[in-house]
């Protein structure tokens, strides 16, 4: 059902010679869900387009699906499913027409197509909307139509470009859970691009952190969070508190403790419901910037001094 995708030594240059992607080798295991995470311009979308066949790697790069070289195959012959950033739904077709397009192109008979479209509508909870025009749908519904359309021809590789990019925050979280459940049932190899670390951590079995056309780290969300490869990864995936020199820690490694050895002055606090986010000015020689820490219950007022203890096992040594 699903396949193993491999990018082998793939680079991608602009005509002027600048690199969108430096030579990169990445493996995406069959059935896994991988997040390509990074700021804009980091090469994540380029990586996705290389996998899709919408872009060709520079000479020397190869794209392999289950060991078969597909580098020369254009997107229409790769048998992938793709969800585009703004969904790219066909405005001249209704919901069912959009979902059934991939089957229509493949010459699937009408009866079979109708059945499959109905199945996809059910799977993405769009029952009863088959004859809606796509411009009459909400953002969340459009996203589900795009997903259903990509999945209808039963692709062995699913690629999603910022699948939640066009949605508001509340909807994002709801749809994220929905997509996670759907991917878990389908067990289809999935690769998605995002600049949102929470999304990457929540959905991906694996996270690939990228910056300026290079892969900085590849691993499980837990590993990337707990052992970031460098300062950039640490800062991009979560928050880092600087302890001086190359020593850093995560917010949860600090806790209020009268017997503690570290001190800081509360600058500002943000009540976030379940917890309060505090920003402190560290009173530790060499510590730069602000510390962030999340506390439950009542918190000290701005301006007050706090004594903190540090879980020394959680100290991260990160080179610049």
């Amino acid at each position: 059902m699903s396949l193993t995708a491999l990018l082998q030594n793939c680079a991608r240059s602009f005509p002027d010679g600048t690199r969108a992607l430096h030579p990169t080798t990445l493996e995406f295991a069959a059935g896994s869900v991988t997040a390509l995470l990074g700021p804009s311009g980091c090469g994540k979308t380029t990586t996705l387009r290389l996998l899709a066949g919408l872009a060709m790697p520079d000479a020397g790069g190869r794209v392999l699906f289950d060991g078969t070289d597909v580098t020369g195959l254009p997107v229409e012959q790769r048998g992938i499913g793709m969800v585009f950033q703004n969904y790219a739904l066909f405005p001249n077709r209704d919901v069912a027409g959009n979902i059934g397009y991939g089957l229509e192109v493949r010459g699937v008979p009408k009866a079979e197509r109708t059945a499959r479209v109905a199945e996809m509508l059910r799977l993405t909870r769009l029952e009863g909307l088959g004859h809606r025009r796509v411009d009459q749908l909400s953002g969340g519904q459009r996203q589900r139509v795009a997903l259903a359309r990509a999945l209808a021809p039963a692709p062995r590789l699913l690629l999603l470009d910022e699948p939640f990019g066009a949605l508001d925050a509340r909807l994002r979280e709801a749809l994220r859970a929905e997509l996670a459940a759907l991917l878990a049932t389908l067990r289809i190899t999935t690769i998605f691009v995002t600049h949102d670390q929470a999304e990457a951590m929540a959905l991906g079995d694996q996270v690939v952190v990228m910056q300026s056309g290079r892969v900085l780290q590849q691993g499980s969300p837990r590993a990337v969070y707990q052992q970031p490869a460098n300062r950039f990864v640490g800062q991009f995936v979560g928050t880092l508190n600087h302890l001086g020199g190359d020593r850093f820690c995560r917010p949860e490694a600090l806790r209020p403790d009268p017997a503690g050895t570290l001190g800081g002055v509360v600058l500002v606090s943000f009540f976030e419901g379940g917890h309060t986010r505090l920003h402190l000015r560290p009173e530790v020689p060499g510590a730069e910037g602000e510390w962030v820490l999340n506390l439950g219950g009542t918190v000290p007022a701005a301006g007050s001094r706090m004594t903190l203890a540090l879980d020394s096992a959680a100290v991260l040594h990160l080179p610049a």
Binding site: F84, F90, Y101, P153
Partner: peptide, 27 residues
Amino acid sequence: LDPALEEAARSLGARRWRVVRDVILPG
């Protein structure tokens, strides 16, 4: 015309003439 529409049609298996017929001409 949104170029992503053409890419979407291609990603679903549409060859050149299908893209012209189904996406470009209606657009």
